[in-house]
């Protein structure tokens, strides 16, 4: 099953061309890593998949779960099974993490024609996931991302991932700003999440997350296009030789 297919995707942000023809297919059961230097267009790719305002597809096509995304709103794409992990998770003062998670899971269930989740079941499940991510229950009562450390913000993203169980997780620099302990916790969450039914795309600057998560494919992205694809070995090459030299490959 194809979860994501990009065919010759080109895109602009505020009329500035950032992506220049990307081809990528992610099937169920696969974990991909997209690596590249700063400014290569990785975050733009995340926003364009999400359907964010101001990001325009200029050429090519995006298919999610086998259907073109043309005309789909941000929430429709999310409800079809796309999850974006944010590089810089935004703060929402006044809204508790618990409340946010409940509304999010209920939105998913309602779109499937199901009832809202029973509060007790919800609490049990959220507490269980929090525990696995080494987050205290106190953390659930705090406002979304307000006053969270960098590591807590990223673990909070993984908590949302594990709760919402999307078909395709596109995680933008989930490893940035994490110390080794937090990195291992996040990696463990991703490993618990991955299955034959879903797909994961890890967008990363460094190879170190890949020490903890086994990837099937690695793509090198430079100047808005994928210049090289390969297996996990490719990531090690980047670690040793850097991105220079790969751009013209």
């Amino acid at each position: 099953m194809k979860l994501l297919e990009l065919r010759g995707l080109a895109a602009s942000v505020d009329e500035k061309q950032i992506l220049n023809g990307i081809d990528l297919t992610v099937n169920a059961g696969e974990v991909h890593a997209i690596m590249g230097p700063n400014g290569s267009g990785k975050s733009t790719l995340s926003n364009i998949l999400g359907g964010r305002d101001g990001y325009t597809v200029t050429e090519g096509e995006i298919e999610l779960m086998g259907a073109p995304v043309n005309g789909m709103s941000v929430e429709e794409r999310a409800l079809t099974g796309l999850f974006l992990g944010f590089q810089h998770p935004i703060e929402i003062p006044g809204v508790t993490n618990m409340e946010f998670l409940k509304v999010a899971i209920d939105s998913h269930r309602i779109s499937l024609g199901e009832e809202e989740m029973n509060t007790r079941d919800f609490m049990v499940q959220v507490r269980d996931i929090s525990k696995r991510l080494e987050l205290s229950t106190e953390f659930l009562k705090r406002f979304v991302n307000v006053g969270f450390s960098g590591g807590e913000k990223k673990r909070n993203e993984i908590l949302q991932l594990m709760l919402l169980q999307p078909r395709l997780a596109f995680l933008d620099e989930t490893d940035s700003g994490l110390d080794v302990d937090a990195l291992q916790v996040v990696a463990r969450g991703i490993n618990e999440f991955r299955s034959d039914e879903n797909g994961v795309v890890l967008v990363t600057h460094y190879q170190r997350l890949l020490n903890y998560v086994n990837v099937d494919f690695v793509h090198i992205m430079i100047n808005g296009t994928i210049v090289k694809s390969g297996d996990a070995q490719l990531a090690h090459e980047v670690e040793t030789h850097g991105y220079t030299g790969l751009g013209e490959a």
Partner: peptide, 14 residues
């Protein structure tokens, strides 16, 4: 902010 709304909508909340 746009960022707050994008986060919420990306989690399926209209």
């Amino acid at each position: 902010s746009e960022d707050q709304l994008f986060l919420c909508r990306q989690r399926g909340i209209d």
